[in-house]
């Protein structure tokens, strides 16, 4: 029961360009893992065997920001790291989405200290937050679904993500 059953006998498919592009985008997210601390380990667990993010088309991990469209900020971001994160965010081509994984990236977590940025959303736009310290791999998968929803609702000509 794949796509071919929907297409029918003549081999035609009517859709919008928007729908087609979003369908492609959301099922082939290329994540850029910006892993620093504990959450990075859970993120790696998500990418590996048992939780296997490739079931949802997001397994092509690219460590080069120029080849990826989903930034997963996982772990504490210190004031020394923040410029690096911003540089990487800027280097990613549009359209791009950001997951802030875990309490520390989202709000500083238990570390209300002099060196830790209290939430990366102060400085870069964040689309989906994942609660947890660290979040379980299932939570990260859920966040990827949320991103897929966002991508699906996106109008690629709306200008939100450049053109």
């Amino acid at each position: 029961m794949g796509l071919e059953s929907l297409i029918g006998g003549e081999g035609f498919l009517t859709t919008t360009v928007n729908g087609l592009v979003n369908w492609g985008r959301k099922n082939a997210l290329w994540p850029m893992p910006f892993g620093t601390a504990c959450c990075a380990i859970e993120m790696m667990a998500t990418f590996s065997g048992r939780y296997d993010i490739s079931r949802f088309g997001a397994e092509v991990v690219r460590f080069s920001p120029r080849q990826s469209d989903l930034l997963i900020v996982s772990g504490r971001i210190s004031i020394k790291m923040m410029p690096v994160l911003q540089k990487i965010y800027r280097q990613m081509p549009e359209p791009k989405w950001v997951i802030s994984m875990g309490a520390c990236a989202s709000c500083g977590g238990v570390f209300d200290t002099y060196t830790l940025v209290q939430g990366v959303d102060q400085f870069i736009p964040v689309d989906v937050y994942v609660p947890g310290c660290p979040p379980r791999p299932e939570s990260l998968l859920d966040a990827v679904f949320e991103i897929q929803k966002l991508v699906g609702e996106d109008r690629f000509d709306s200008g939100k993500h450049g053109s």
Binding site: T36, C38, I41, S78, M81, F111, T113, T115
Partner: peptide
């Protein structure tokens, strides 16, 4: 220092029992 979190400074502001929670995040493996 790209992951400097201030564990030691935090230790001076937390009670002896509380700091156990923080110690996990130091070596998360």
């Amino acid at each position: 220092g790209y992951l400097h979190t201030g564990f030691e400074k935090l230790g001076e502001h937390m009670t002896y029992q509380q700091w156990v929670t923080v110690s996990d995040r130091m070596n998360y493996l």
